[in-house]
């Protein structure tokens, strides 16, 4: 469960997010849409506790995350899988090492890592790329690695900031398929996107932001409530 309660974020003079209220239930698939500069990435960074709000509270699973101490942030982040437009793989690690890294961070045993990594790579259909480095594979393949890494620790949430932004149409749809599957297995997915075609076809909840304000929130059934 993710709750925004009257959240405002200001950069200098500029109000980037104004008085945002939001409730996302467990298991939901939510699109966040809006023009460039609207404040979508800011919203995502607030959820992952990369930045803190100037006003209001963000509550994840009943806990106000602004109150997290520095020690509590790493464990908190481990229940969120992040996916980005630019993939953000570790360039010096191979595909399987990139995925293994997420498991090393939570101190999984070597045995578990050895068993899990091939399974994860198989889930995103890239088991044959395991020894390649990120710069040796295509964008779509890199994004699959990033998704495998994001789900490695079986997180409650997947947060994706324009995950298809750098990919061609067909590849983008393959990634959407993956995210949909992950959601169907019970993981909450929050995805920022520009691609109106994807949003229309997927028929999920859509939250629209403009100039830092949530201007609409449309549930799959068609009801609008802001």
């Amino acid at each position: 469960m993710i709750d925004f309660k009257n959240v405002t974020k200001v950069y200098g003079e500029k109000v980037v997010l104004k008085d945002a209220n939001l409730h996302i239930d467990d298991g939901e698939f939510v699109f966040i849409v809006g023009p460039t500069g609207a404040g979508k990435s800011t919203l995502i960074k607030l959820i992952s506790r990369e930045i803190e709000p100037d006003e209001g509270d963000i509550v994840v699973d009943g806990k106000v995350i602004d109150d997290l101490s520095n020690r509590e942030i790493p464990p908190f982040r481990r229940q969120i899988g992040m996916v980005f437009q630019d993939f953000r793989l570790l360039p010096n690690l191979t595909v399987s090492e990139n995925v293994a890294f997420a498991k090393e961070v939570v101190h999984s045993s070597k045995k578990t890592i050895k068993r899990m990594v091939p399974q994860l790579l198989a889930m995103v259909d890239i088991e044959d790329l395991s020894d390649k480095f990120p710069d040796e594979i295509s964008g779509g393949e890199q994004q699959r690695v990033a998704i495998a890494r994001a789900i490695a620790n079986n997180p409650k949430y997947i947060i994706a900031d324009e995950p298809t932004g750098n990919l061609d149409g067909e590849t983008a749809w393959a990634i959407m398929d993956l995210l949909d599957q992950i959601n169907k297995r019970g993981t909450t997915v929050v995805m920022v996107t520009h691609a109106s075609e994807i949003v229309e076809k997927m028929r999920k909840r859509v939250i629209t932001i403009q100039s830092g304000r949530i201007i609409s929130d449309v549930k799959p059934g068609g009801s609008t409530d802001v």
């Binding site: 020690r71 890294f101 997420a102 620790n153």
Partner: peptide
């Protein structure tokens, strides 16, 4: 720097 940022996203502690 980017690498360190990524590690922190994944939930790595500073000592890790």
């Amino acid at each position: 720097q980017e690498e360190i940022e990524i590690m922190k996203y994944i939930g790595a502690t500073n000592w890790f």
